[in-house]
């Protein structure tokens, strides 16, 4: 428990520092950080899944569901509060995850990736066809309010930055705590050896489904956050290239450290934006080369620069060994 307390304090301090720093940053960077944080939340979900050894290539699915639900709640049902919109988006995506999760929990590796990709493309096809929600052009979403305060032109950049920073920090903390819980540690055990976990009497499928639902809730929150600050949504939220970017972000971060995903997300946004500025004709080439170099030279992600993934399982193993020893002595008595 003390480790969680320590993390909570550290994250709160980091959040305060971030919010203070935000006051001094130029507006374009604030918006870029907002986008990086919103997308990072989706990547956070992928990290939860990656710890269990699977990668979804279709997080665009839940990203779009969260975004569309938040957008529709704002435009059709007059929901104006940003936090409520994020919660709605997240809840809707979690429900979708709860439907799809148990079906997908059986599959691993490339099959899991392909199935999730296919599901997201099915949603894309539906959205393009749905003229009621703007078809392929999507629709614009009005600026929401934030906990009773109105957001206007002058403070919107900072307000959205603050909102996404707070939500991203809280969610990262929750994910970190979850990863340290026994249920969270189970993912690593599944990643190592599923059968052994099942012989120990735990349902691997249930664990995978729960991870999927958590990832969906995070994806939905990220989608809602993006839509709120961007003011627009269209079916591309569910397109495969979008999902590919999330996977890249998660791989770039590595699953060793949850906060690393935000650094990865920021790095991706910066590279994309600056290659667009300096190589308008060949920005895809620049982005592609960047991806390749990262995969080649940072195979375990930026998170591996400061956190060691091996620490957690070894500690868990220690705990398990102690428990086993205790059981043995109890039995002997």
């Amino acid at each position: 428990m003390s480790r969680n307390l320590h993390s909570t304090l550290l994250y709160s301090a980091a959040l305060v520092a971030l919010l203070l720093a935000g006051l001094m940053l130029p507006q374009w960077l604030l918006f870029l950080l907002t986008m990086a944080a919103s997308h990072g939340v989706v990547g956070l979900g992928l990290i939860v899944m990656m710890r269990g050894g699977v990668v979804s290539f279709g997080q665009g699915l839940v990203f779009a569901i969260g975004g569309y639900v938040a957008g529709l709640a704002a435009t059709r049902y007059g929901v104006t509060d940003a936090v409520v919109l994020v919660l709605l988006g997240s809840a809707a995506a979690a429900i979708a995850g709860a439907i799809a999760g148990p079906l997908l929990a059986r599959y691993r590796s490339i099959f899991f990736a392909m199935l999730t990709l296919a599901l997201s493309m099915v949603l894309y096809g539906i959205l393009v066809k749905s003229s009621a929600v703007g078809g392929s052009d999507g629709f614009n979403v009005p600026r929401p309010s934030l906990l009773g305060f109105s957001i206007n032109e002058t403070n919107s950049d900072y307000a959205f930055f603050a909102l996404s920073s707070v939500i991203a920090t809280v969610l990262t903390l929750l994910v970190t705590i979850y990863c340290r819980s026994s249920r969270g540690l189970l993912s690593l055990a599944i990643r190592d050896n599923e059968l052994r976990v099942e012989y120990l009497g735990t349902s691997v499928r249930a664990a995978m489904a729960i991870n999927f639902i958590i990832a969906a809730a995070l994806g939905g929150a990220g989608g809602a956050l993006t839509v709120i600050s961007l003011g627009h949504i269209d079916p591309n939220f569910s397109y495969w290239t979008r999902s590919g970017e999330f996977v890249f972000m998660a791989i770039l971060a590595g699953h060793a450290s949850a906060p690393a995903v935000f650094l990865a997300s920021l790095l991706l946004e910066l590279v994309r934006s600056f290659s667009n500025k300096y190589f308008p004709d060949t920005w895809q080439l620049a982005l592609g080369l960047f991806l390749l170099l990262i995969i080649l030279f940072l195979p375990k992600g930026v998170g591996s620069l400061w956190a060691k993934p091996e620490r957690l399982p070894r500690q868990a193993a220690e705990k398990a060994k102690q428990a086993a020893a205790r059981n043995a002595t109890e039995a002997a008595e």
Binding site: V55, F57, S109, I110, A113, T241, G244, V247, F248, I251, D281, T282, W283, Q284, L285, L287, G288, L289, L291, L292, I295
Partner: peptide, 18 residues
Amino acid sequence: DEVLLVLVTYALFLILED
């Protein structure tokens, strides 16, 4: 990881496009 390889070919796709 197979998924990593998907990503490698995605990067390749971007590069070849340009």
